[in-house]
Write a protein that binds this DNA or RNA. Sequence first.
DNA 1: ATAGATTGTTGAACCGCTTCGATGATATCG
DNA 2: CGATATCATCGAAGCGGTTCAACAATCTAT
Lengths: 350, 350
Amino acid sequence: MATIDDVAKAAGVSTSTVSYVLSGKRPISGPTRARVEKAIRDLGYRPHAGARALASSRTNVIALVAPLRVAVNVNVIMEFVTGVVTAARNHNYDVLLLTQEDATGIDRVSSGSMVDAIIAMDIEEDDPRIPLLKAARQPAVLIGLPRDNAGLSCVDLDFFGAGAATIRHLAHLGHTRIGMLGAPTAVWQRHTSFWDRTLSGAHYEATSKGVTFTAIPCEASEVGAHQSVTELLRKAPDITGLVVHNEAALPHVVAALRDTGRAIPEDISVVAICPQHLATSQPQPLTSVTIPATAIGKVAVDMAMQRLSDPEQPAETRLLAAELTQRATTATLHSAAENTSGDTASIGLM
Amino acid sequence: MATIDDVAKAAGVSTSTVSYVLSGKRPISGPTRARVEKAIRDLGYRPHAGARALASSRTNVIALVAPLRVAVNVNVIMEFVTGVVTAARNHNYDVLLLTQEDATGIDRVSSGSMVDAIIAMDIEEDDPRIPLLKAARQPAVLIGLPRDNAGLSCVDLDFFGAGAATIRHLAHLGHTRIGMLGAPTAVWQRHTSFWDRTLSGAHYEATSKGVTFTAIPCEASEVGAHQSVTELLRKAPDITGLVVHNEAALPHVVAALRDTGRAIPEDISVVAICPQHLATSQPQPLTSVTIPATAIGKVAVDMAMQRLSDPEQPAETRLLAAELTQRATTATLHSAAENTSGDTASIGLM
DNA sequence: ATAGATTGTTGAACCGCTTCGATGATATCG
DNA sequence: CGATATCATCGAAGCGGTTCAACAATCTAT
């Protein structure tokens, strides 16, 4: 492997000149720069990452802490990861992948100076990683919103707004009895931050709009989806609107509703909170609030880069606005009443 | 950050002694070792990864090249990644994540000495990455089996054997008209290695067992699955056995078969090639050949480590034996005949 | 013509660790 | 008892870059 000295020799300049050509931190005359660049090309020279990291205290690597268990939401996670990796490359950064499960990971890569910044996803309200991230010498960006985020940058979809938007949309269409199928019980109990916030937003909007609102958990499997639909319809048999915030269960929920003889959107309107491709790839495109996973990943990287370039930069929290797109699965209660018994309509007036 | 010199000073020894305590490459007396270890603990010392890499030409990082596009088989990919990351940690290695799309990635991390080895997944017959991997100074391990694998280590499920096993199983149950739904057209055309081999194995076994065999592609979506099922039943209306090698389409295929009025396994036996959790999590557990993704990821890492510890170690190819597990979706043609018209049975005798 | 500023390049120190050869102290043997 | 082997530790030379102070050469203003 050619070293920087080999290049310098070949170009007839000092090693520092080569370094400055590479980094652009000092002006180099045209002819000199050309000679150096030729030598680099001829020798196929590539700076040694370790040497560079040692001398400059920059690794050009960021750590990404991701939940790699076979999770309910692999699709969403994958999209986050893709967004992060792609954005990182645009800043000339590579990504070191850590699993949530490897508790020592954060400390290891941080105090070992393996990375310049850390991005952690799937953050819970009281996430055990928070103290580690605060203690790290490198800036950290969380994808999610923990209870205590002092000194840490956070990005996420405005899930409170997302929850509210779904209710507002359904209420606007005339629905007054609304149900919600959410995360699996485990996520619910873990107080994963996104889920708590969706629920609050929905509750808040339901209260202020005066509509009844019933939310229950939903497992990710086909069987679980059927059970949850059954239970929800038992608890609140008169609902005409349903919010589903569970990517994995989505298709099964739709199927289960049909199995009960309910037509979508004639008998029941359905709005999802999920990545866009999931909403549009269904046989009947779903009205949905998009989870812009790729965009969030990109913002996370950008925030990390910002804090690297200006260490004085204070931590900030950025919540991306929720946008609801109406597709084929929601309709006004009025038009629904045309195709169904008067019961539903009268209930709507209660 | 404390350096090795700080530790040496605190322990009253030379820096090299500290280094040898850490690496164990030279014997150190009990008392000395104890003093050094105490100093390390007191100072919270962690070796600087860059410095270490520079001095030892070992980074303790491996690169993993993964297809991060939202692929049909996110679940499987995720499982490979998990297997690799977990296994890597057991060897005290971290994982740098590269995307397939970033063509420069392999060369960058290789010639920049960012990693000690490279693992590439989702290999095609004539994969454009092969020349890059051969040119790399670091050992490479492929998950998949390209046409030309000289000098490269490969691991994969024995997909030829898997394809053969599905046919053998169905033939053993008396089925003589067998259909197969495979990868999407794109994968088929790309000659992704696993799919070609499954097909060959199935064909080979079908020929030798004298059963008729019809395979067509299948897209990953619900709509695509329905279309493929319809087309297959048009081309080969008399099939009593079906092999599905397409994780994403699996549940939709099952649903589509039911929609045609066929009961599983009474009217048609179904065997899948997919990760185990997918087969068992269906409402009706599927007879399947397991894709042991986690295990393959682990083997890939182990092979890489082996070649690192002994550079003379020649490249080898390891194909994990395919194992078929019978569950609820396959039955003998005889018992099927009891519940169906004589037509099927007579065709079975042809 | 000369002091001062600007531009382009260099030499050398340093980043933090590994590893090899050397050294002194003990143990082993004929 | 002296010669030799063994054990534990040390000093110093890299590994391959970055960066700073300094210097030479050229340009501007007086």
